[in-house]
Computed example of a mutant assay.
Amino acid sequence: MAADSRLARRINDRMALDLIAAAGRLSRTQLREQIGLAQPSVIDLVNRLLDAELIRVAGESDERTRGPRPQMYAIAGERAYVAGVHGSTGAIHAVVGDVSGWTSPTVSIPDPRLQDDPAPQVEAAIDAAFAAAGLAKHPLTAVVIGTGGAIDLSTGDIGHAPGLRHWQAHFIAPVRERLGCPVHLEREITLAAVAEDRFGGEESPERFALLWVGDGLGISCIDQGVPFRGFWGAAGEIGYLPLPSVGPDPAPPHTFQDLAGSSAVLALAHAHGLSDPTAEGAVRTAVEQGCQPFLEELADRLALGLHAIATVIDPGNVVLSGSTAAAGGADLAERVEAALASRTWQQVQVLHAKYAHGEEAILRAALLLATEHGRDAVWGRAA
């Protein structure tokens, strides 16, 4: 019976903390109404969370009442700070927050490839994020780092990241040692999919595959909020997907990256008379000017890869994201859907991302997951 009571308290405490975090602040009456506990139990719950320093008094209710206005309670965010980090080929980006949901400004520091040891640079980026928020450096409870390439789920380390020379195997241990807290790695494509799922609005489907089309290609599948990572953590590395040649040239089979990575898109754009210096710029110009042949050929290339993917995973919904796809917007998504429909009997809706296009989405998702790890770590201290 004692064990059952402790379990019930833990469940109620976590529910109350989640509700307060989502609302910003709640009164005891509001907690009672939402949790369904009797008033004495809610009083005991609030006192327990106050004693554990997991919540704090946050003023009084704004509602007019006959008697004294009820006290409001908020998450004591300063009890646990967390950080989200993203390593790209151009910089390390970082943002810090706490378990209440507070977030610092985003900061960036120069190219990580200049450092043989990336751990000091990860720490420097996090320190800069604290400084940007006007805070002294605080101990961290959890950090999530987004990286290109694959994550080895058996070790939690980087399995393969060709674009980041020094972000390779044995990366995680020195970073954890330097930061002094749990550090979790996630594929940047997975983070983009999480961002689209959590922040893309009510129109985002519950199940979808996010296809990232930018410098590289990647895909991440979300099923009711849960990303699929694969057995070893390499699910979605579709840049290596072998595909047949396109056009009349009987060349050896290409990879999907050869057909639809940014270099290939830029070469295709130049072949169609578009002189923009970047792939996303060329796609944006093509949409604005109605350059049908280029857009149709690009859509067909994307559909070729998606046909192979849809045959295996049957996603139902595909969300196009990344810099190149973002430049094409709804126009490119509609063309890809039509091109895919001409190739397969499967019904696949192709959408353009509502939220997850660039750096900010990846960082925000990294911080969100770090916040969830931090809450799991510190919100078990009550009861």
Rank of each mutant, 00 (worst) to 15 (best):
A3L: 12
A8Q: 13
R10N: 11
A16I: 00
A22L: 13
Q39R: 08
L50S: 03
E60C: 08
P70V: 10
I75L: 07
A76L: 07
G77N: 02
G77E: 11
V82N: 04
A83H: 04
G84D: 03
V85A: 08
V85D: 08
V95H: 00
D98H: 07
T106N: 04
T106L: 07
V107P: 13
R113H: 13
Q121S: 13
A124L: 15
A128T: 14
A132S: 09
V144D: 12
V144W: 01
G146I: 03
L153H: 05
T155I: 04
G159F: 07
G159E: 06
G159C: 07
A161Q: 12
A161I: 12
P162Y: 13
H166I: 06
H166A: 09
A169G: 09
A173P: 06
V175Y: 07
R178G: 07
L179M: 04
E186H: 06
E186R: 10
L191K: 14
V194Q: 10
S204V: 15
D223H: 14
Q224Y: 09
G230W: 01
G239A: 11
S262T: 07
S263V: 09
A264D: 09
V265Q: 05
L268C: 05
L268E: 05
A269N: 10
L274Y: 09
P277N: 15
A286D: 11
V287I: 14
V287P: 00
Q292E: 15
L295N: 09
L298Q: 04
L298V: 02
D300W: 06
L304H: 05
L306H: 04
I309D: 02
P315D: 03
G316Q: 10
V318T: 02
V318Y: 12
S323Q: 12
A330Y: 12
R343A: 04
Q349A: 14
H352I: 06
A356R: 05
H357I: 15
G358V: 01
L363N: 04
A366G: 10
G374H: 06
A383C: 08
A383Q: 02
